[in-house]
Design a protein around this nucleic acid. Sequence first.
DNA 1: AGCCTATCTGGGAGCGCTCCCAGGTGTGGC
DNA 2: GCCACACCTGGGAGCGCTCCCAGATAGGCT
Lengths: 342, 342
Amino acid sequence: MGPRAGDEERPTLEDVAAFAGVSRSTASRALNDDAYVSAAAREKVLTAARDLGYSPNQAARSLVTRRTGAVAVVLSEPEDLLLDHYRTAVMKAGYRELADVGRQMVLIFSDTREDLSKTVRFLEGGHVDGALVFAPHRADPLPKALRLLRIPVVFGGQAAGIRRGVHVVDFDNEGGARLAVEHLVASGRRRIATVAGPQDQSAPIDRLAGWRKTLLNAGLDPADLAEEADFTLSGGANAMSALLSRHPDLDAVFVASDMMAVGALRTLDAAGRRIPEDVAVVSFDDNATLAPAMDPPLTSVHQDPREQVHAMVETLMQLLADQNLKPRQQILPVSLTVRASS
Amino acid sequence: MGPRAGDEERPTLEDVAAFAGVSRSTASRALNDDAYVSAAAREKVLTAARDLGYSPNQAARSLVTRRTGAVAVVLSEPEDLLLDHYRTAVMKAGYRELADVGRQMVLIFSDTREDLSKTVRFLEGGHVDGALVFAPHRADPLPKALRLLRIPVVFGGQAAGIRRGVHVVDFDNEGGARLAVEHLVASGRRRIATVAGPQDQSAPIDRLAGWRKTLLNAGLDPADLAEEADFTLSGGANAMSALLSRHPDLDAVFVASDMMAVGALRTLDAAGRRIPEDVAVVSFDDNATLAPAMDPPLTSVHQDPREQVHAMVETLMQLLADQNLKPRQQILPVSLTVRASS
DNA sequence: AGCCTATCTGGGAGCGCTCCCAGGTGTGGC
DNA sequence: GCCACACCTGGGAGCGCTCCCAGATAGGCT
C-alpha cells in the first residue's frame, strides 16, 4: 500500500488551498473567477495551482453542477454511414464551434438498428449537456426517439417525421435549386435536366422541388427530365447517361451534388459534349476541394456547413440557458458560385 | 422553488433501492453485476431500475472509480488537418472498436499551435482514461509533450521524435513497398519509378525506402526515378508529369497512395500511355471506394485501418489493466491486392 | 455440538467539488 | 456613534455513486 514510484497523487482543490494558505472555498472562487475574491488571494491561489500542476476533477465538478461541458454530435444513418464531404465538414466545424464556447464534442455514429437504443441511452445517461443531431433520412426513427429526451437537441437539416416543436437549422435547398435553374434560364438554356439525389432525404427532395417549380415558372416543361441517383460519382455518371439517351438535345443539367456532378461531367465528356457550350452544368454543395478543381470548374450552389453548425451551437447555448426557448426553424440562405461550367 | 412541470427529477440509485426494497449497496451490486447478490434481489433491482427509467450518474460513478469510460482519439497535424480517407476510416473504426469494449470515443483535432497545450490540458484533465494518438508528422511536438502524461497512450504510426518507451501500432510500410516493387519486377518491369509521399512523415519515408531497397536488391537503379508529392490528386498528377518528362521510357510506377495514383493515371492517360501495357501502376492504401473503381482498377498495397485501431484498443485495454506493461512496437503486415493496373 | 466457510446484506465513509450561509472586516452616510 | 452595505472569507452540507467492513444466515465439516 506504500506509494509506488511515479504514483504521484493528483493534487486536489484542498491541496491548492492549503498551499496557498486559504480555504477551499476561496480557492474554488479564485479558480472559477467568481466575484468577491481579493486580488491577493486570487494571485496566491493561481500560483499555487500552477506550481502544483493542478487540474480540476471534472467528475466532482459535474456531479455538483449537473453540467458535463460536453455536447454530442450525432451522425445518424440507418444504413452504413458514409463519411462524405458534408459530414466530415460538420465534424470539424462541430469540434471548432463547440471548443469556441468551451464545450467538448463527443461524436456519436448511429448507423445500425441496435445503435438507436444505445444512442438514446447514451444521450439519456448524463454524459452530455445537449446534442446536435444530423439525421437526413426521412425514415430514420432517431428524431422521434429523441423527443422524450431530457437534454436539449438541435437538428441539422429537417428532423425526420417531425414538423414542429423542435429546433432546426437547415439550408434553403429549394431556394438554392431556384438560383441554379434561374441562372441557367437567364443564360438561354431551355432543356434543363436534373440529376436528383436520393428521394428518401429531405434536402434532395427540396432541391428537386426547387428545380421543378422554377422550370414551371419559366414556362418550361420538366417532364421526364429528372433522374435520381445516390450521391456517388458513379451514380451521377449513370444518371447522366440515362438523361442523355432520353434527351440527346438537353442543353443544361442541374446536379444535386458536386460528387455526382463529377460523374456527370465524365459522362458528358465521353459523349462528346462540350461544357458549357453544348451542355451547361450547375451543381450543389460548392465543395472547396472538388468544385474549383474540375475541368471545367463547376458552377455550384454554395452552402457552408460551418455556418450551419455555428447557428446550431448558438441555438443550443441559448437552450442551455433557457430550457423553455421557443422552438425555431432557421433556414440559412445559400448563394450561387458561378464558374466556367455554365 | 416548487416543482415545475416536466421537471422530473432523475431517479438515483437510492430511489431504485427503495423501490426494490433493498439497500443502496445491494442495488449497486445488482446493477454492476458483482458477485454475492441473490437472484431474487438482482431481479427486483433490475425491474425497479427499468420501471423508474434509471440510468446511473456517470459523474458520481467516475468520481469514485477514477475511470471515465472514455478514450480520446487524437488526430494531430500541425497544419490544417486534412480529413482524408485514412483518418476518416480511423475515426469510424475508433468509434466501433471502443464501443465494443464499452468505451466512449472522444475525438480531438489538434491542428494549430495553440491546440497543443489545449490538447495536453484536456488529456491531463481526467476527462478520459487513455488516448489513441495519430501524429504522422515528424516535426509534430505533440508526441513528446505527451510523454509526461499520467494517462496511457498508444500511437498509431510512429511517434515523432520518439524511438522507444512508447506503445506503437504501425503498418509495415517498407514491406508493403517491397511487395509492390517485387510484383512489378516479377512481371518483367525494369524502369520502375515512384511517386513518393511527403518526406516529413514516417510512413511515406518508409515506403520510399522500401522502393529503393527492393530496386537495388533486384539490380536496378533507382537514381532520379523518385518524385515527391503531397498525397493529393493533383500532386500525383504533377509528379507523374515530371517523372514522364525525365524518363519517357519508364515502364512502371509505384505510387505511395491511391489518391495520388488517380492523378498519375490521369497524367499517363493524357500522355497516351496504355495501362498496364505501357506502364504498370501499383499504389498504396487499397482504398475500397477508390482503388477498385478506377479505370483500370488499381493494384494496391492493402492496409486495414480497422485492424490497426483494433490492435491499438487492445493494447490500451491491457495498459489500463496494467500500467507497467512493457512498451511494444507492433508492426502490422500488409498485403498486395492485384488488379488490372499492373 | 461446535466451528468454519461461503453467501448475502446494509450502513458508513468518502471521492473532489460547488454552493449556501454565517460571520468578519472595512467604508461611508446620517 | 451607529447602522447599512459592500466586500471578502471559511465551514458545512451534499451531489450520487462505489467500496470496505461488520454482521447475518445457511450449509458442510470435524
